[in-house]
Amino acid sequence: MTTPIPAQPPVLRPEQLTAAYTYAQYRQLIDELMTEDKTTGETQSAELTAYARLNIQRMERLDKKAELVPEMTAALADITQSYEWVIITEGWCGDAAQIVPVLEKIAQASHGRIRTHYLLRDQNLDLMDGYLTNGGRSIPKLLILHADTLTEVTNWGPRPALAQDLFLEMKAAGATHEEFAEALHGWYAKNKTQATQHELLDIVRGL
């Protein structure tokens, strides 16, 4: 006798999805807070505001210049079902600034099969705490859900494996936050979204 597989519960409620930001709303929120020298999140400081200001510049650059690799465009054309991509993020997060624009470009090129929804980490800790990285609330975190059931297909994040390896190496070596941030953003600049795209490509091909 075969034991039935329990039904997978939805990752979040439909009303949570409805309350999420669109990419345009997320960007507008960050810009508006910056006029008050603030950023998203429960903690406010001059340091976090400075990070957020740099992140706005990073996102603007990627919005204008980042291009999807041809393999991604081809894989997106083969998707036959609809998906909700829930992105847990914050305006002060440097990794999010380097990755969120890429996620949005992928969704925009999906012919309506992928819809993005942006949730702030500190306002959604109950959801975030189900997707910890080594016990930490690392972001961004991408949750890929079936559109009809809101059950999980897979998740990804907070950064490409190569960048995560760099982070772990520098952390083990006792690097300061400033040293790590400089090295990480230097890596992102040289990599030009390639590692992010190719990891996500493997996921998109499986959808």
Rank of each mutant, 00 (worst) to 15 (best):
42 E>M: 13
159 R>K: 13
52 A>K: 10
76 L>N: 01
203 I>Y: 09
49 T>M: 00
177 H>Y: 12
22 T>P: 09
135 G>A: 03
152 E>M: 14
200 L>T: 08
144 I>P: 03
193 T>Y: 11
157 G>W: 03
154 T>N: 07
118 Y>W: 10
98 Q>A: 13
42 E>F: 12
59 M>W: 08
158 P>D: 01
100 V>Q: 05
54 L>S: 13
193 T>C: 10
161 A>T: 14
80 T>V: 04
203 I>G: 02
16 Q>S: 11
125 L>W: 05
174 G>D: 05
197 Q>R: 08
192 K>V: 12
68 L>Q: 02
79 I>N: 01
56 I>G: 00
19 A>L: 04
202 D>C: 00
26 Y>T: 01
184 L>G: 02
173 A>R: 14
85 W>D: 01
130 G>S: 12
21 Y>E: 02
171 K>R: 15
196 T>C: 10
26 Y>M: 13
157 G>K: 10
87 I>S: 03
71 E>T: 11
183 A>Y: 13
176 T>Q: 09
114 I>G: 03
179 E>G: 14
111 H>Q: 13
121 R>Q: 08
82 S>Y: 10
96 A>C: 12
103 L>V: 04
187 W>A: 10
67 E>V: 14
154 T>S: 07
17 L>M: 01
50 A>H: 12
133 T>V: 13
28 Q>I: 04
23 Y>L: 07
57 Q>S: 13
1 M>N: 10
72 M>P: 00
86 V>G: 04
51 Y>I: 04
169 E>V: 07
67 E>L: 11
198 H>S: 09
54 L>W: 11
123 Q>W: 03
138 S>R: 12
53 R>T: 13
66 A>N: 06
78 D>L: 14
86 V>N: 03
194 Q>K: 15
79 I>L: 10
33 L>T: 04
88 I>W: 10
112 G>T: 02
76 L>S: 02
149 T>I: 06
85 W>S: 00
58 R>E: 03
147 A>L: 00
176 T>H: 09
148 D>W: 03
65 K>N: 14
68 L>H: 08
115 R>I: 04
6 P>T: 07
1 M>V: 11
59 M>N: 06
164 Q>D: 09
133 T>G: 01
186 G>T: 12
149 T>Q: 05
199 E>P: 10
72 M>T: 05
124 N>Q: 01
171 K>Y: 02
154 T>I: 02
100 V>H: 07
59 M>C: 07
49 T>Q: 02
9 P>S: 08
131 Y>Q: 06
115 R>L: 03
46 A>D: 14
195 A>K: 09
78 D>R: 15
3 T>Q: 15
111 H>F: 01
181 A>L: 14
